[in-house]
Structure formats: structure tokens, C-alpha cells
């Protein structure tokens, strides 16, 4: 079952920045780009577990703070020569409010994020 719940407001997140949400399956980073697009992506770099939410956001990409791998926010896939992907989650933003599908956050349906 899909159920969309509000996780916060667009204005809670700085432009070119990120905030985290803690969920039953682990920490998820919510990014906001310069153009006010929002993306949800697991807060864990597939390289060595760096918190992607702490990276520098440029365009629709983020650079991991630990070893500078660059990830696409939309697909979670590492760019350039690096290989790996972080899990992404569906998100919707309406009238400045951000919603997430709780189905994607149920331990029963979604495997926990590796820690």
C-alpha cells in the first residue's frame, strides 16, 4: 500500500544542501538543489559509508565528503570512473511540502539500509 506522508517543508532545507530523516530502515538524506528540486537518497556512500548528506551539492549531483566520489541525486549512481550506487526513494513536493511514500520505508517491504 502506498501512503504519502509529509516529511517536512522545502524551506527546511537550504538550497544546494541536505537534511536527514531517521526512518525505521535507516537514515535517508533529502537534498534540495539550486532549482528547488528535491531528492531522497540513502545517507550512505557505497564506497566507504560516507554520509552523502554532508557533501557539496552541485547541479543534481553531490560530492561525497569522505573521498570525493560524485553521485547523481536522481539515480544514486556514481559518476565518472567510480562504480556503485546508493539507494534512492520516491519523493514528491507540492506547495512547498515534501512527501514520501511510507511503503518504501516499511521494514517489512524494504530491506534495511546497511550500516
Amino acid at each position: 500500500m502506498s501512503e504519502w506522508i509529509e516529511i517536512g517543508k522545502l524551506s527546511d532545507i537550504p538550497q544546494r544542501g541536505a537534511r536527514c530523516i531517521n526512518t525505521p530502515i535507516g537514515r535517508i538524506a533529502i537534498f534540495r538543489t539550486a532549482k528547488d528540486d528535491v531528492y531522497a537518497i540513502e545517507d550512505r556512500c557505497p564506497h566507504k559509508g560516507g554520509p552523502l548528506s554532508q557533501g557539496i551539492v552541485h547541479g543534481a549531483q553531490v560530492t561525497c565528503p569522505l573521498h570525493n566520489w560524485v553521485f547523481s541525486l536522481e539515480t544514486g549512481v556514481a559518476q565518472g570512473m567510480d562504480e556503485g550506487a546508493a539507494r534512492t526513494f520516491p519523493l514528491s513536493c507540492k506547495d512547498g511540502r515534501i512527501f514520501m511514500d511510507t511503503a518504501a520505508l516499511q521494514p517489512a517491504t524494504a530491506p534495511p539500509l546497511p550500516r
Binding site: D12, P14, C20, I21, Q106
Partner: peptide, 15 residues
């Protein structure tokens, strides 16, 4: 302030 707090916490019951 926003840097140091998660935006939201969820611990809703399982489906």
C-alpha cells in the same frame, strides 16, 4: 540550526 537536527524522525508501525 538546521545542520544539527534531522528534519524528521519516523517510527511508524510496520504494515
Amino acid at each position: 540550526k538546521h545542520e544539527f537536527h534531522p528534519m524528521a524522525e519516523f517510527s511508524f508501525p510496520q504494515a
